[in-house]
Amino acid sequence: MLEVQTYPTVGEAASAMDDRARFLGGGTLIMNRVNYGDRRFTRIVRTTDASLSEIRAQGDRLEVGAGVKMAEILASRDLDFLSPAARAVGGPAIRNMASVGGNLMAPHPYGDLAVALLALDADVRMVSGEEMSLEDFLARRNGVVRSLLVRRPQGDEFRFRKVSRVKPKGISVMSMAAHLTRSAGRLSGVRIAYGAMARTPVRVRAVENALEGVSLDLAGISAALSVATEGLDPPDDPIASGWYRREVAPVHLRRLLLGEDAR
């Protein structure tokens, strides 16, 4: 049978964790498992710690608590650059519940916000105090996250696009984010991230490299489009086959990079 443990601080909650326990964020994924009788865990650990839901400035970065909900991102002026990604998560009710921390842990094809954060080169701060890049965190995905640290992008250099079959709400066929930094009019140090194209949200190094030093126009990005899915083996799921994802990825990447309207 199941047990629920509630702690006043996130530190205490984190130390109560083991592999038969799950840390409760907004519960949109965990409660689904509970409702369907998942027996891989027998404890739900939660905290009433309000600090987990704070959004505050930290030097030149913003610190976003792991318990912050998508709806709270949408309501925050400081985080307006994340709103396209936060708005892409579920419908209104889900956005009132879905947390940032949970989104980093969400299985394929979820994790749309994490894709945006990945392209923004966010760092993860664990409850233990340890800090690491989001990319490293996604590769191991364990421990309790306290917050995300992210720098505000400049001008229009950040772009996010989610491709889904149902609108306005729909699960990702794929999501894509780009941080298009430039130097002397040419792309330089660009970061590209995909969601629903691998087991977790991923950076796409082949595309990033192909964009180095080119101009942001169709001719400039054509080499990048041709390696749009290099090194990736997109999964099959009820939303789309891996084959389909691979076929359409270059089209959506082009639209993302050139800011073309989808419809």
Binding site: T6, L24, G26, G27, M31, N35, A71, G91, I94, N96
Partner: peptide, 20 residues
């Protein structure tokens, strides 16, 4: 969404809300 209720005025899917 059949289970949608408002919590503090905001819509939530009650099937995924841990009751406590």
């Amino acid at each position: 969404g059949a289970c949608t209720v408002l919590i503090d005025g905001e819509p939530h899917v009650s099937c995924l809300v841990l009751a406590e």
